[in-house]
Structure formats: C-alpha cells, structure tokens
Simulated assay, not measured.
Amino acid sequence: MESFNEYHLNPQNFPFLKTFQDSWQVIRDEFTTFMKQASPEELQFTYDVLGPKSKTIKTKGSSKYSAFGILFQGLFVESYVQLHQIQYQNYETKIAAEKSLELRNKYFSNLSYVIEQVNGFDENIIRNAYFGTFHPGLDIKLHVNYNPHMNRGYLGLIVPEGDVAMKICHETLYWHEGEFLILDHSYPHCPHNYTNYDRTVLVVDFFKPDKSREEVIAFEKEQVAERMQDNPYSLGVFGKSDKAKEEDFIKYGLAHQLEWDKALSS
C-alpha cells in the first residue's frame, strides 16, 4: 500500500483532479496529435511562447527538459501574454497572443474544456497546466520550486518502463500512466530519466485547498510580479527562489550533488 507524507500527497484528497484523470487518454491523444501534426513553424512558436523557461534549474549533461502549456497563473496563455505584455524577439505581443489562442483551439480543446470545468466549479483552483517531457538521459540537479501556496500534480501520459523517477527528500517516486503523482515542490528534489524514451506528463499546479484563498492569491500575485520582472519567459512558473540551499543538500544526504555543483561552477 502506498504511503504518503508532508511532501508526497494522496491524490484522493483532491477530488477536483478526477476530471483530469478521467480524461487522461484524451489529453494524451491531444499531445501526441500535436507532436505529429504540428508544422515546424507551430512547433517553434510553441516552444518560444507557450513553454515556461527557467534560468535557475540546471541539468547534468546535454539532455534537456522541454515544456509547453495552455494555462499559467489561472489564465489561458493568450490572456497571460496580453496581461503581462510579454515582448518576444520574433513575435509582437498581440500576434503572440492571437497565435496562442489559435493553437489552443486547434489542438487542445479537450484539455481547455477540462480546465474550464474544474476552475468554474472551484473558483479557479488550477493555476498552471502544461506538458513536461523528460528526454532520454535527463538528470536534473537538486532544486526546489518555492510555491508554498500550491501543490504540483503530475498526470502520467507517456511513461516508459525503466529508471525514470523523482528523488525527493529521502524517497524515490515513480510516475504511472493515467495516475496523478502529487508533490509539495517546496521540498528539494531531483528527477531523472535514464531510459531511452521520452517521458511526458501533464503538470497541474493548484492552490492548496486548506489555505485561505485570499492569502494564496495575494502571495501568487507578489511572487509572479517578481518572477516576471526577472524572467518574463518563465510565465511566472520559475524564479530565483528555486535554487536549493546548501543545507538542503546536506539535510537530505545529497552532499555529493553539492560537490558536483561546486566543481561545475568553479
């Protein structure tokens, strides 16, 4: 029987996520259809505009993590781009927003509907929804995602057999297709994919239901303003506070990663 704790949370405690889980195959099919049918121009635009980017989370080696999504800080991506007037090198803000809406309607109508259903029923509890792909050989260095107002759910869409896992604190956890893995990402963690295949999940960030909604909205607003000022292409998902502290490495028995970090930066 699976055990849960303060950072590995029981999905049954968050019944609003069942709508996503019930639609997991449809959501997966939208992702795979997009990857097969999108034009090179659409793919380039997607990773330029719809992909949250981090300046602080680093990987070992050359393998990468890729992500793109349709909901950020409770807003569909086209509204988020417009609200923050994000400036892109190759797209005017207005054009970027229009193309984002066009792509969302063309490829991700079912996922959009699920988000609208859940957020309409529960006061916009879902904050971010994006696809995250670990490419073969990926090894992400220890970090935190400082979001004390939110939990992060991973809905398994494409999960190969083998060593693809999340190390968080003293545990190693695994993704499963059609199921949610829910974590408090304020705890230090380092995921990897040591298989020869991509692993893709739908990342669903949501407000902690046991916290005051006014309190978490106020915190999110302040945090997003800071993150967007530092890196508008983070779409408010990542920030400087994601860097693990030295005591995190030591506390969780990952001092070897700290030495690797220091050697790389010297």
Rank of each mutant, 00 (worst) to 15 (best):
residue 1 M to L: 13
residue 2 E to L: 05
residue 2 E to N: 07
residue 2 E to G: 01
residue 5 N to S: 12
residue 8 H to A: 12
residue 9 L to R: 10
residue 10 N to D: 15
residue 17 L to T: 05
residue 19 T to V: 14
residue 19 T to G: 03
residue 23 S to A: 15
residue 27 I to C: 04
residue 29 D to V: 02
residue 33 T to F: 14
residue 34 F to N: 05
residue 34 F to P: 05
residue 36 K to L: 12
residue 38 A to W: 07
residue 39 S to R: 04
residue 41 E to I: 02
residue 41 E to D: 12
residue 41 E to N: 09
residue 44 Q to C: 02
residue 47 Y to A: 02
residue 48 D to M: 08
residue 49 V to G: 05
residue 56 T to Y: 08
residue 58 K to I: 03
residue 59 T to A: 13
residue 62 S to W: 08
residue 63 S to I: 04
residue 65 Y to T: 12
residue 65 Y to W: 15
residue 79 S to M: 04
residue 80 Y to V: 00
residue 84 H to S: 07
residue 87 Q to I: 13
residue 87 Q to P: 03
residue 88 Y to E: 12
residue 93 T to K: 03
residue 96 A to E: 09
residue 98 E to A: 15
residue 100 S to F: 05
residue 105 N to I: 07
residue 108 F to P: 13
residue 117 Q to W: 03
residue 120 G to N: 07
residue 128 N to E: 11
residue 130 Y to G: 02
residue 136 P to I: 12
residue 137 G to I: 06
residue 137 G to M: 10
residue 138 L to V: 09
residue 139 D to T: 06
residue 140 I to F: 03
residue 143 H to N: 04
residue 144 V to R: 07
residue 145 N to Y: 02
residue 146 Y to V: 00
residue 148 P to V: 10
residue 150 M to Q: 15
residue 153 G to E: 08
residue 158 I to C: 11
residue 161 E to G: 15
residue 163 D to C: 07
residue 164 V to M: 09
residue 170 H to A: 09
residue 173 L to Q: 06
residue 175 W to I: 03
residue 177 E to Q: 15
residue 177 E to K: 14
residue 179 E to H: 11
residue 183 L to P: 00
residue 183 L to V: 05
residue 184 D to I: 01
residue 189 H to T: 07
residue 189 H to C: 07
residue 190 C to R: 08
residue 191 P to G: 01
residue 193 N to W: 08
residue 193 N to K: 06
residue 197 Y to Q: 15
residue 197 Y to N: 14
residue 197 Y to C: 08
residue 198 D to L: 05
residue 198 D to M: 02
residue 198 D to A: 08
residue 199 R to N: 03
residue 200 T to W: 06
residue 207 F to Q: 09
residue 207 F to C: 08
residue 208 K to E: 10
residue 211 K to T: 00
residue 211 K to V: 00
residue 215 E to A: 14
residue 215 E to K: 12
residue 224 V to S: 04
residue 226 E to M: 14
residue 226 E to S: 13
residue 229 Q to P: 04
residue 231 N to G: 10
residue 236 G to Y: 11
residue 238 F to D: 05
residue 238 F to N: 03
residue 241 S to K: 11
residue 242 D to C: 09
residue 243 K to H: 01
residue 246 E to T: 11
residue 246 E to Y: 03
residue 246 E to M: 13
residue 247 E to Y: 00
residue 250 I to C: 01
residue 254 L to W: 11
residue 254 L to S: 08
residue 259 E to Y: 06
residue 261 D to H: 05
residue 263 A to C: 05
